[in-house]
C-alpha cells in the first residue's frame, strides 16, 4: 500500500463517501492514498482495474468525474467537492447527455 502522514486539506467524494486529498495531486493519487486500488471494471470481462501507469498512457484509471465518464483520473487534479464514481464497462455518452 501507499501511505502518507499528512492526508491533505481537500475533500473529494468517492462513491458518495468523503476522502481527503492534497492540493495539486491527481484524483488517482488521492484514491491510492485512501487505499482505493480499483476504480473501474473492464468492458470486456468485467474485471476490476485501477491506476497502473499514473501518466496518462494505460487508460486503466478511468472513472466518472463529476458526471463525465472515461476520465483519466491520473491526469485530473483534485478539486474541493469533486464527485468520483466507479466506471462500469465502457463510457456511456448517451446517458451523460440525458443526465
Amino acid at each position: 500500500m501507499l501511505t502518507r502522514p499528512d492526508p491533505g486539506s481537500v475533500t473529494i467524494l468517492f462513491e458518495g463517501a468523503p476522502i481527503r486529498a492534497r492540493a495539486g495531486e491527481s484524483v488517482a493519487s488521492a484514491l491510492l492514498a485512501a487505499g482505493i486500488l480499483a476504480v473501474r471494471t473492464t468492458p470486456v470481462s468485467g474485471a476490476p482495474r485501477g491506476p497502473f501507469c499514473m501518466m496518462g498512457a494505460c487508460f486503466d484509471c478511468l472513472a466518472v468525474v463529476d458526471g463525465v465518464g472515461g476520465v483519466q483520473t491520473c491526469l485530473v487534479p483534485v478539486r474541493e467537492g469533486m464527485r468520483i464514481e466507479r466506471q462500469h464497462g465502457a463510457r456511456d455518452v448517451a446517458a451523460e447527455d440525458a443526465a
Binding site: T3, G24, P51
Partner: peptide, 15 residues
C-alpha cells in the same frame, strides 16, 4: 514510474 509520480505529486510512500 507510477509509484514515483505518486511520491512526487502526492507524497505517497510505500508501506
Amino acid at each position: 514510474g507510477a509509484a514515483q509520480i505518486a511520491l512526487k505529486t502526492g507524497g505517497l510512500v510505500p508501506d
